[in-house]
Design a binder for these strands. Sequence first.
DNA 1: AATTTGACCAGTA
DNA 2: CTACTGGCCAAAT
Length: 104
Amino acid sequence: MILNRNQKIWLVVSKIPFGKVATYGQIAELAGLPRQARAVGSILSQLPRSSDLPWHRVINRKGKLSISPESGKYMEQKARLEQESIIFDGDKIALKTYQWNGEK
DNA sequence: AATTTGACCAGTA
DNA sequence: CTACTGGCCAAAT
């Protein structure tokens, strides 16, 4: 069973634990696709709404959400994270302890 | 086939 | 802290 690029990324994203977040670059790295952070964002942007992947746990390296704040999805992502007891300090996550290190 | 776009990143000022 | 830059590379155009 060979996994295509999308499947590798989906797999890694699905492993991000509840209450934790990961960066695009980290996802790309863990998926065996170094330096393809942008591809991760591109793929996540195309997820169907029916998807049950924790896409909201993927943020950028600055600790902020990479969606335009005007977009409705921005609110949705923030709400989903707060629902996992992740606290925000303005527009960025408050604690780096939220950051997933990639371990199981 | 060529060019542009994008839910990124790292360094620098 | 923000702003700008060059780098990166798959997807879309």
